[in-house]
C-alpha cells in the first residue's frame, strides 16, 4: 500500500461509561480504498466510523484524518468534517429544505461557494444519483431509496476525500436497497475512498478492497473479500457469515 493514508486510527479505545465500546482499534484507510466493515449489532462498527468525523469522541489512542489529529480541543473540526462525507441509516435530510437546497447548503455555508456554483454542483451530483427531476421537492415527498440517494448527493457536493456509510440500506424497503447499492457501486468505480458499515455481502464482495469483521469492540479479522468470504479464519467470523449468508 503506497497510497497516502486518509484515515489513520492507532490503538483507539472508547468507553460509554463502564462499557468498553472500542478496544485497541488499529486501522488505516488509504486513498482510493474501499473498506466494508461488518459484524453483529453492538460490535462497535458504527461507533468506529462515527469517531472518524468526531461525531463520537475516543478516549485513548490517536485518530488522524487527512493529516489532522482529532482531539477534544481541536479548533478545525469543521475542516475535517467538510472533508469526510457521511451517509446515515435514517438519511437525516433537512426536511424543511428542498432536495436542491439540501445539496447546496453545505458548499454555500461552509465553503462559501456562490449560490450559482453550488446549484450547478448540486444538480451535477443529483444527476449522478439519477434524481435530478426531484430537485425542487421536499424530502418527505420522496421514497426512502430516493431520500438516501439525495443524502449521498448531499455529501458528495462537499467534494469529500472520503465517504463514510453507516448502514445506509438498513432502514429501506427491500425493493429500494438495490438503487442505493447501485449508486454506491458507481461511486466505488469512480475511485471514491469509502468506508461502509453494511450487511450487504453481495455489495461487499463486488466492491470491497478489504473486509473487516468486528465483534465486541474489536477488529477480529480483516482481509481481501475472496479469502474473507472463502476462507474465514476466525470462528466468530465463520459463525457470523454463516448466519447472514444462510438464506
Amino acid at each position: 500500500m503506497s497510497a497516502e493514508a486518509i484515515i489513520e486510527a492507532k490503538a483507539v479505545s472508547k468507553w460509554y461509561g463502564q462499557f468498553h465500546a472500542l478496544k485497541d482499534i488499529n486501522l488505516t484507510v488509504h486513498k482510493g480504498e474501499r473498506i466494508v466493515i461488518c459484524g453483529p449489532s453492538g460490535s462497535g462498527k458504527s461507533t468506529l466510523i462515527r469517531c472518524f468525523n468526531r461525531l463520537e469522541a475516543h478516549q485513548e489512542g490517536d485518530i488522524t484524518v487527512n493529516g489532522i489529529e482529532l482531539h477534544p480541543k481541536m479548533k478545525n473540526v469543521a475542516d475535517v468534517r467538510s472533508n469526510v462525507g457521511m451517509v446515515f441509516q435514517h438519511f437525516n435530510l433537512f426536511p424543511h429544505m428542498t432536495v436542491l437546497m439540501n445539496c447546496m447548503a453545505g458548499p454555500m455555508w461552509v465553503k462559501g461557494v456562490s449560490a450559482a456554483e453550488a446549484r450547478k454542483t448540486a444538480l451535477r451530483f443529483l444527476e449522478r444519483v439519477r434524481i435530478p427531476e426531484q430537485a425542487n421537492k421536499f424530502p418527505v415527498q420522496l421514497s426512502g431509496g430516493q431520500q438516501q440517494r439525495v443524502a449521498i448527493a448531499r455529501s458528495l457536493c462537499m467534494q469529500p476525500a472520503v465517504m463514510l456509510f453507516d448502514e445506509p440500506t438498513s432502514a429501506l424497503d427491500p425493493e429500494m436497497v438495490s438503487e442505493v447499492l447501485d449508486t454506491m457501486t458507481g461511486l466505488a468505480r469512480d475511485g471514491m475512498t469509502m468506508v461502509c458499515v453494511t450487511h450487504e455481502m453481495g455489495f461487499a464482495r463486488a466492491v470491497a478492497d478489504r473486509m473487516i469483521f468486528m465483534d465486541a469492540g474489536q477488529i477480529v479479522e480483516e482481509g481481501k473479500p475472496d479469502s474473507f468470504f472463502g476462507n474465514p479464519q476466525h470462528a466468530r467470523t465463520k459463525l457470523f457469515l454463516s448466519q447472514i449468508l444462510k438464506h
Binding site: N53, L55, A78, D79, V80, N92, W109
Partner: peptide
Amino acid sequence: IDRGQWEASRSMGFG
C-alpha cells in the same frame, strides 16, 4: 428536533 439533524448538520461541518 431529532438528534439525527444535529448529526447530519455537524457531519457537514456546520458550526
